[in-house]
Amino acid sequence: MEFTISQIAQLLNGTVEGDSTGIIRSASKIEEGSDGDISFLANTKYEQFLYTTRASAVIVDQSFKPSQPYTAALIRVANPYLAFTQLLEEYQKITEQRSAGREQPYFISENVVIGENEYIGPFTYIGKNSRIGKNLQLFSGAYVGENVIIGDNAVIHPGVKIYDKTVIGNNCSIFANAVIGGDGFGFAPEADGSYRRIPQLGNVVIEDNVSIGSNTTIDRATMGSTIIRKGVKLDNLIQVGHNVEIGENTVIAAQSGISGSTRVGAQCVIAGQVGLVGHITLANGTKVGAQSGVSKSVKKENLSLSGSPATELKAHLRAQSLVRRLPEIVQRLENVEVSAGIKSHEGK
């Protein structure tokens, strides 16, 4: 597919500086751009590549002021990152071929309702009494249990397992080998030191516009529901425990774990390898840095935390600065002790 720079600028509601007649054939990173490519500049630390890139066009912020000569045409927009995302979405719509129909072998149980325009891949299973909306994409090896409800435009990738009674909203994507609705980690200690399994009788509720990454697991509730609110984006390899609730438009990066009955607010950002203990609450807008451990509730909104145990980011950075200076501080203390010893000896 080929488009002129002016056509792309029109799509993005942007303005062009430079040759608007150039032809764009593909997208690339700005440092790897070549003739016929379009890229974007959203982070100033990559500005140096604007002056060396061979890309034909670069999407930049409306207020961006170059400091050196460059050869690419500039498309100025309000938000370069979002504009580039929009461009990729449009390109995907044009080039991606949507699968359709049903491929043998598959199994659909009794009393299942599926909306129009579905794709059912090979070796898939849908349990009885499940209801699924239109435009379903159910890829090979996926399992949908009994009494499951799935909304419109669901994309369920290979190997996904969706247990009984799970409820999934519209426009949700679940990537390969994710497990939704498995048992929560609930065991009661016995007098002899063994553990008895606590029945997990609840379910998982996933609202609209949620994305769940590969190999992520979301446990069903002991009673009630584990809830993922609308707009949540979960990366790969995340563990969400039973009875957890994650608020609207929260994003969580890979290898993070949330223990049971914890409440994560809306618009939170949780980086990779973060651990949250159970039965705590994170206020709306909380940001947690990578490899942090959150052991207490966060009541104030829009705080940034880091470290283990997690503390406010400014305090954590001050502490880290002091840790780096510890050898110097110890040396100074030893010098003071030596000096004090000499003076004391001389005084005698």
Rank of each mutant, 00 (worst) to 15 (best):
Y195Q: 11
I212H: 04
D192N: 14
N43Y: 03
V205R: 14
G193I: 15
V112G: 13
E90S: 12
I156F: 00
Y143E: 04
V232F: 12
E31W: 05
G181F: 04
K300A: 03
I75Y: 06
K134Y: 04
R332G: 05
I342L: 10
R131A: 09
Q92W: 07
S56L: 02
V155C: 09
I114L: 15
L74Y: 06
I30K: 15
K29S: 02
N117K: 12
N203I: 02
E248R: 10
Q331D: 00
G184C: 06
S20G: 15
S56N: 11
N129D: 11
P69N: 14
Y143D: 05
A83T: 14
I5W: 08
A154N: 10
I30G: 06
A72H: 04
A319I: 00
I258D: 15
L136C: 06
E337S: 04
K296H: 03
S339I: 04
Q239L: 09
I246G: 10
F187E: 11
D152V: 10
T216H: 09
L41E: 01
V277L: 07
D152E: 13
G184Y: 13
N135D: 12
S99T: 07
N13Y: 02
G33V: 02
I270P: 07
D235C: 12
A55S: 06
V179Y: 10
E103V: 12
A154F: 07
V269H: 10
L276I: 02
Q320G: 08
N147K: 13
S256N: 07
G115Q: 14
H157G: 07
G121A: 08
T85W: 01
N153G: 02
G36Q: 03
R102H: 06
I108T: 12
I30P: 09
N335P: 03
V160H: 03
G14K: 09
S214A: 13
N147H: 14
G213I: 05
I280M: 03
G289K: 08
T262P: 12
F64I: 01
A271M: 08
Q137M: 02
N284M: 03
V112L: 12
D164V: 12
L322Y: 05
K128E: 14
S295E: 03
A142P: 04
T95I: 15
Y70R: 02
I30L: 15
Q68K: 15
A271L: 06
I218D: 13
S321Q: 08
G289H: 08
E346G: 01
K299S: 07
L305P: 05
V288G: 01
I252A: 12
D235R: 13
P66V: 04
D192G: 06
G265I: 11
V148G: 05
I38Y: 00
I156R: 00
Q273P: 13
I150V: 11
D219R: 10
D19W: 01
Q331N: 00
I126Q: 10
